[in-house]
Amino acid sequence: MPKVSMVVNGNKVSGDIDSRTLLVQFLREELRLTGTHVGCDTSQCGCCVVHVNGSSLKSCTVLAMSLEGANVVTIEGLAQDGKLHPMQEAFRENHGLQCGFCTPGMIMAAVDMVNRKGSNMDEATIRHELEGNICRCTGYHNIVKAIADGARNMAVAPQAAAAE
């Protein structure tokens, strides 16, 4: 079987995998990083969003083999030294979840959004940028509040950059 190597959450990892292994399968089944979820498996819902070389990607729609040498960050890679990332903390503070299934993808999409759009996003921008992430519980209201809050907090927290 072909071999693939990449950096996941700062650790060098490699595996002998079937060519058809999707990134999300590699993360969940080989590396046992089960924080990244599979919701729809058709690149609609965004539960599987991770960062690859600094940009958000839907890990259910990319082959692990395509990411040889890539730098991948998953939800498990955000908290540092037992302290939640400001975006994770904002989701907790604002009750930005109910069942929690979409939350890892929401948070990874939110951090990517802040990286691209800055820390002062208005509500319309956040809602528009979230179009690739679906939540069946919350009605999005608290998710949007959490992202606005988390974005502001990332601007003052130095660890936000370190996680990338």
Partner: peptide
């Protein structure tokens, strides 16, 4: 096109 994660790929 699509959404941000799709546009990245």
């Amino acid at each position: 096109i699509g959404d941000p994660a799709v546009r990245h790929r």
